[in-house]
Amino acid sequence: MDVAKRIIPCLDIDQGRVVKGTKFKEIKDAGDPVEIAKRYDYENADEITFLDITATHEKRKAIIDTVEKVAEEVFIPLTVGGGVSSFVDVHNLLNAGADKVTINSAAVENPNLINEITNKTGRQCIVAAIDVKKNNQTQTWEVFTHGGRKNTGNDAFKWAKDVEKRGAGEILLTSMDRDGTKQGFDIELLNLISSNVNIPVIASGGAGSLDHLKDAIILGKADAVLAASIFHYSIFTIKEVKDYLKTHGVLVRE
């Protein structure tokens, strides 16, 4: 298998601007999405993910404009998510230049949405975003929605199998326990999901060191790793990540 493991920087977008902040606190303007995306492309990022965190519904249209501008100048896959709830939302983002769209809460509330959309678009452009927390009593992982505020009680393993069956092309798996902690990915969770589905799994939540990224791929069997702050704050460049992975035998695109 010669397909390279993907390194995916994630940008939080608020009303058309890149913002930095931790856990929705101290959010600061961090620049122009086009310029930042171009820099990531230049550094050999394999894909870029935009997460729209615009709070007010009316201002969400700004993301369409952002995607259009980035797609004019950046020629690597662009994934967009945040508040996507219908085929029309997906269609508008794809038309603007997104290659893939992530669906989260809306799919949990109405799982048929995945079937409905992928029947029209093909499975390659739908990424099922799954946010999970471990229930320490039952030792299982539960699916959360609405930015982690709502516990659905659904079992993450079953939901991952279900989104695959319904036609999702990929899973973006975020550990809410680890998100923002820089303590490393939840390897046990990753390995459980990635070994049991036949679609690619992107690891998210917890990246803090180069070892964390390596472990997500080698031990967690992730097909790609997504990280925000380590790239935002230039703790590591994409090249440093790829060089490190390469020395540990991971196939990366240089």
């Binding site: 298998m1 010669d2 397909v3 390279a4 993907r6 390659q124 679609i199 690619p200 097909d223």
Partner: peptide, 12 residues
């Protein structure tokens, strides 16, 4: 084989 499908990503 135990291949992830689709074949998604960068390849030579």
């Amino acid at each position: 084989k135990n291949l992830k499908i689709p074949h998604m990503g960068w390849n030579k």
